[in-house]
Amino acid sequence: MFDQHVAPMAARKIAKKEHFKRAETYAAEYREAARNTVEAKRAARKEGKFYVPAGAKVAFVVRIRGINGLAPKVRKVLQLLRLRQIHNGVFVKLNYSTLRMLQRVEPYITYGYPNLKTTRELIYKRGFGKVGSRAKGWSRLPLSDNRVIEANLSKQGIICMEDLIHEIYTVGPSFKQANHFLWPFKLNSPKGGFSKKGKLIHVCEGGEAGNRGELMDGFVRKML
């Protein structure tokens, strides 16, 4: 009986070491990026210029309104974004076509640009994997074990939670596969409720709909 468990236990130890090494590598990469940003801001200030950060690559989108009064095109776009239910959230890679889609359904969603902490908290606290196939049916599995991730994304070089977080946050070459693996996030109603002006009003006018930019982090934390 003991001999049967030696190989799996040894393999898990090796896997844990690899996961830890990758996490350290990513942490160093994030620190380096933050340091470069600070240095770029200082250099711009010295020269009397303004530092303009690179545009966001990924947005986190949350559906805030139900099905009442949905036009067919709006319904279709929400389905393409995988936002089939109220308070569902998804990551979206930003490009010309996805920005057009977000603009079309803006009265029904709120979105913004999550930082690393928010991305990590979403995946760790609310992350579920989409396992199976269209023919046999999909299963929603909690990401409580790295083996679930490895079994479905190892071909893309993603074998643990930190790999998955890094791929989503940096919009890596396998973002599409990693994002498709993540089941749409099921979030709570925000603590304290929505603003008094309501969901129909744009964020710029004190409401809830539309682009929050970097303020999305605070909104997401109220829904976790």
Rank of each mutant, 00 (worst) to 15 (best):
M1H: 06
D3E: 12
H5G: 07
H5S: 12
V6K: 02
A11G: 05
R12G: 12
K17G: 15
K17R: 13
E18Y: 05
F20R: 14
K21A: 12
R22M: 07
A28I: 01
R31W: 02
R31T: 13
E32P: 00
A33D: 11
V38C: 06
E39Y: 05
A40W: 08
K41Y: 03
A44W: 03
E47I: 09
G48F: 05
G48L: 09
K49L: 15
F50L: 12
Y51Q: 11
P53M: 05
K57D: 13
A59C: 07
V61C: 02
V61F: 00
V61W: 00
V62E: 01
I64P: 00
G66N: 08
G66H: 06
G66I: 10
A71D: 15
K73P: 04
R75T: 13
K76T: 11
L78N: 06
L78A: 12
R82H: 12
L83M: 09
Q85E: 14
Q85L: 12
V90A: 10
V90H: 04
V90Y: 05
F91S: 01
K93W: 05
N95Q: 11
S97D: 06
T98R: 04
T98P: 15
L102N: 07
V105D: 04
P107M: 06
P107I: 11
I109R: 03
G112E: 05
Y113P: 15
P114S: 10
K117V: 09
K117T: 11
T119Q: 08
T119S: 08
R120I: 06
E121R: 15
L122V: 12
Y124W: 08
Y124R: 10
K125P: 03
R126A: 09
R126M: 09
G127N: 04
G127Y: 01
G127R: 02
F128K: 13
V131T: 14
G132K: 06
A135R: 15
G137Q: 09
W138Q: 14
W138C: 13
L143V: 14
L143S: 11
V148A: 04
V148M: 03
V148P: 00
I149P: 01
E150G: 04
E150D: 14
A151G: 13
S154T: 06
K155L: 08
G157Q: 08
G157W: 01
C160W: 00
E162K: 09
D163K: 03
I165R: 00
I168Y: 01
I168G: 00
Y169N: 09
P173Q: 11
P173Y: 03
S174H: 09
K176A: 15
A178L: 06
A178Q: 02
A178W: 00
H180I: 05
W183Y: 13
P184D: 14
P184S: 09
K186I: 09
L187V: 08
S189L: 07
K191L: 13
G192S: 10
G193T: 10
G193A: 14
S195N: 11
K196V: 14
K199F: 05
I201P: 01
I201L: 11
E205N: 15
E205Q: 15
G206S: 10
G206P: 01
G213Y: 05
L215G: 07
F219W: 09
V220R: 01
V220E: 02
K222E: 14
K222G: 01
M223F: 05
